[in-house]
C-alpha cells in the first residue's frame, strides 16, 4: 500500500471511514453533518456508506455531547462533532463534570471511549465567537486527553488512535488547515500514538515547540532563520495532553534555548505549562529564558487588520528566536559542574 497526497479534510474522512468499517460501534453525532458532507467536507462519502451511523441532530449541543457520553457508557464509540470549538461552552457541564470525571468518580468502573471533535482557530474573519483556540481549558481538566494535529498524516493517524483509545479525547483541528495537503499512508492500520511529538525540522541552535497551524508559521520562521545561519529545531507536539516532555528535553539538552508558539492567547495558555516544566526539569541545561509567542490577550476581532495584529505571526517567532540567541552560551562552563538529571525524572511526560 502506498502513500498519496490528501487534504486534512480528506484524511479525516478516510480515517473515519476506515474506523467505521472496522468497528460497527463507531458513529458520528452532531449538526448538519450529512447535507454537504460536513461544513468542511470532513465527512465526504460517509452519509452514503454509513447512513445509520452519521446522525444529524437538532441544535442541542448539551444533549449532543451528553448523548456521546451515554452512548460511550453503553458500548458505543461515538465521535461528537462540535461544529465549532467555540460552542463547547454550551456543553461545558457535560465535558468537564461528566465526561472527564465519570470514570474517576466511579472508581474506574466507567469507560468513555469517545472523541469530541472540534474545529478551532482564527484567521478567517469569523470574529470573537467563531475563532477561539480553547485547548487550555481542557488541558486544565484532569480526565481528558487533548490532541491538535497539523499534518494530514497526523489527522488520520491520531484520529484513528483517538477513536480506538478507551478514554475521552478532545480532538482539535484548525479550520484553516482543512485544505492543507500532504502525504498520507493508505494503510488501514496507520496509527499515530497519542502523546508522541514529532521533530518537523532538525536544528542545533534553538528549539521551537509548537502545534496545530502555528507549526506552519514556525517552519516558515525556521526557513528564514536558516538563511541567517541559525538552525532551529521545530517540534510539532501533536498531542497536548499527555505531551511529549521527553522529546522536548532531548532537543533542549542539545539546543539549550526554547521558544514556544501557539495561536491561543498568552495568559494562562498551554505555553505557560510547557515553560514551567522546562524550568523545573531542564533549568541547568538552559542558556536563555524560555520565551512564548502567542495571541494577544483580547477576544479575536473581526476586521482583518485587527485580527492579524492580534494573532502571532512568523515575524514574532523570528523576534523571539533572535532574543534567546542573544544570551551567551554557558554550555562549556556548565558541563563539568552539573550532575546529570536522573533518568526517572527525564522520562516524565505530559
Amino acid at each position: 500500500m502506498g502513500v498519496r497526497d490528501l487534504s486534512c479534510s480528506l484524511a479525516m474522512a478516510e480515517a473515519l471511514a476506515e474506523e467505521m468499517e472496522r468497528d460497527p460501534t463507531v458513529f458520528i453525532i452532531g449538526e448538519d453533518l450529512t447535507a454537504h458532507g460536513g461544513i468542511f467536507g470532513q465527512f465526504r462519502g460517509l452519509p452514503e456508506r454509513f447512513p445509520d451511523r452519521i446522525i444529524d441532530t437538532p441544535i442541542s449541543e448539551t444533549s449532543i455531547v451528553g448523548a456521546g457520553i451515554g452512548a460511550a457508557l453503553t458500548g458505543m464509540r461515538p465521535i461528537i462533532d462540535m461544529h465549532f470549538a467555540d460552542f463547547v461552552t454550551t456543553a461545558m457541564d457535560e465535558i468537564v463534570n461528566q465526561m472527564a470525571k465519570l470514570r474517576y468518580m466511579s472508581g474506574g468502573q466507567a469507560k468513555l471511549p469517545l472523541v469530541l471533535w472540534a474545529p478551532d482557530g482564527a484567521g478567517i474573519s469569523a470574529a470573537a465567537q467563531h475563532s477561539q483556540s480553547v485547548e487550555s481549558w481542557f488541558i486544565h481538566t484532569p480526565g481528558l486527553k487533548v490532541v491538535a494535529p497539523f499534518e494530514p498524516a497526523d489527522v488520520k493517524g491520531l484520529l484513528k488512535a483517538a477513536i480506538r483509545d478507551d478514554d475521552p479525547v478532545i480532538f482539535f483541528q484548525h479550520k484553516r488547515l482543512f485544505r492543507w495537503t500532504g502525504p498520507v499512508a493508505e494503510h488501514h492500520e496507520y496509527l499515530v500514538p497519542l502523546g508522541k511529538a514529532l521533530i518537523k525540522r532538525h536544528g542545533s541552535d534553538v528549539t521551537i515547540i509548537t502545534y496545530s497551524r502555528m507549526t506552519y508559521e514556525c517552519l516558515e520562521a525556521a526557513r528564514i532563520l536558516a538563511q541567517q545561519g541559525i538552525q532551529a529545531e521545530v517540534i510539532d507536539l501533536r498531542t497536548l495532553k499527555p505531551f511529549d516532555m521527553e522529546l522536548i528535553a532531548e532537543s533542549l539538552r542539545k539546543t539549550r534555548r526554547a521558544v514556544i508558539a501557539h495561536e491561543a492567547c498568552l495568559t494562562g495558555g498551554f505555553g505557560a505549562e510547557i515553560a514551567a516544566r522546562i524550568g523545573e526539569e531542564l533549568f541547568e541545561h538552559l542558556d536563555a529564558p524560555v520565551l512564548r509567542v502567542a495571541a494577544k490577550d483580547v477576544p479575536i476581532p473581526f476586521s482583518p487588520v485587527l485580527e492579524k495584529f492580534v494573532l502571532p505571526q512568523a515575524e514574532d517567532i523570528l523576534n523571539a528566536v533572535r532574543t534567546v540567541m542573544k544570551y551567551p552560551s554557558r554550555a562549556v562552563t556548565r558541563a563539568c559542574s552539573i550532575t546529570k538529571t536522573p533518568r526517572s525524572k527525564r522520562r516524565r511526560s505530559g
Binding site: I59, D86, F87, T89, T90, S125, A127, A128, Q129, H130, P299, P301, F302, S303, V305, L306
Partner: peptide, 23 residues
C-alpha cells in the same frame, strides 16, 4: 470593526447585541 456582520448592534437603540451563538 471588532464585530462584523454577525455582531452588528447599536446599543444606543436598546439593541442588546447580535449573537453568533445560536440560542
Amino acid at each position: 470593526g471588532k464585530g462584523g456582520s454577525m455582531h452588528i448592534a447599536d446599543f444606543s437603540k436598546n439593541i442588546l447585541g447580535a449573537n453568533g451563538v445560536v440560542g
